[in-house]
Design a protein around this nucleic acid. Structure first.
Lengths: 226, 226
DNA sequence: TAGATTGTTAATCGATTAACAATC
DNA sequence: TAGATTGTTAATCGATTAACAATC
């Protein structure tokens, strides 16, 4: 077994992990945190998987991308696996985040408790509307987007969330990139183009509903045919 | 070619379509709607794909699950393809939606303009906190969750969005199912179990940030090694 | 017509599942 | 020890890409 695959906090191999594996990792982490809250000390791949609708083999295979975390005959120690996955996801350190666009959604994001729980701290709230500057939302002062560069540097912010209207999203994203932001979660319902060295995830609320409506409509079609 | 594969508004075959295809369909639709707004009348699979980071073959293959929509030598007529995909996704009809949980996020969802643009109408807003009953948020009256059953039947609501704290999510989901809801978008950071005949999509805002932090952290690790 | 582009088949690539020796 | 469960390999399954005849 190569050293880079040993079970350690460091030395984790990150080579070419499928995106879908990383998204499951987040689900494992969430479930493990619930388990830990219930004082469950160990869990098997089978039990963890079945709670999330995955097979035991899938759980073990996913974790195997990053090392050895389990104990044959026992399973995984909840606490250890939480720490390990947090390290893999990078959330064992604090990430500072800037939000751009303090409308309905931006305000909800500012107030969302789940971020700090996972190691994300929203340290700046920006909007192009200067009327909003100076107001305080959820303990964070809203400032003009003109100060983006300065603020990103001052607070050493690496991540940004974009919650502006679709027509403004690309321009805001460009400004974030220019300021040195390394990853963006885009809530605007439009595709944005970023250089390769900046990661992005898109969240489109209407699309989430569409995925459901497809499945429900499909069921109705099937019924009609039968 | 079988009749069920002919290019028609009806007669679309829905057999065993991968989930990832349906999610790309939503992206195609969104892009096509932008193109239509720019009065672009036709588009090729290559052009549509490259705007979204997909290959031409992928676009054509995805659409081929549902029928023939293009014109050899020409491409796809924007307007026709918008209509076709809306029909496939089921958003050519209006869906009524209930939101449960009128906190920060629930309020933002109530105010989100993108839903009605895609054919979703939020007709009811429920909360367990009776203090909130009677208040009007974004033109919708907040009511007690006790009235869920009655309201779902009265408005013929098929879809629900859950924006309650994690500990309440499963119970709320159960109540939605009991009331006859057929699909749920779950914003609570917890896995909920539903019967097979009810579809669900989970949206966890912290997980979206985790996916970004993984990629950024990975890049940092790689740099350190080189 | 010549050029462009589709729909579809076959080849390739990648992810999931099954199986089992090793281990607690 | 016997039973449980891991990590990992090989087999299977499914999705993406390449290629091209058909068509406008």
């Amino acid at each position: 077994m190569s050293d880079s695959k040993r079970k350690t906090a460091n030395g984790i191999s990150f080579a070419s992990v499928p995106k879908v594996v990383v998204s499951r990792l987040s689900l494992y982490l969430r479930e493990l945190q619930h388990l830990r809250a219930e004082s469950k000390e160990t869990i098997s791949s089978g039990e963890l998987g079945s709670r999330l609708g995955f097979t035991d083999a899938q759980v073990r295979k996913d974790l195997a991308y990053f090392g050895q975390f389990g104990y044959p005959g026992i399973g995984y120690r909840t606490d250890e696996l939480v720490q390990a996955i947090r390290h893999i996801l990078g959330t064992d350190i604090e990430w500072r985040v800037v939000i751009v666009g303090i409308g309905n959604l931006g305000r909800a994001l500012l107030g969302y408790k789940g971020f700090s729980r996972q190691g994300f701290e929203i340290v700046a709230a920006l909007d192009s509307d200067k009327e909003k500057s100076g107001s305080v939302v959820e303990g964070v002062e809203v400032q003009s987007i003109d100060r983006l560069d300065e603020i990103v540097k001052q607070h050493k912010i690496r991540l940004g969330m974009v919650a502006v209207p679709a027509p403004a999203a690309q321009s805001v994203a460009d400004q974030l990139v220019a300021a040195g932001i390394e990853g963006i979660v885009n809530f605007a319902p439009v595709t944005i183009n970023l250089p390769d060295h900046v990661s992005q995830v898109g969240v489109d609320l209407a699309i989430e509903l569409e995925q459901i409506s497809f499945t429900v409509a499909k069921r109705l079609h099937a019924l009609r045919r039968s």
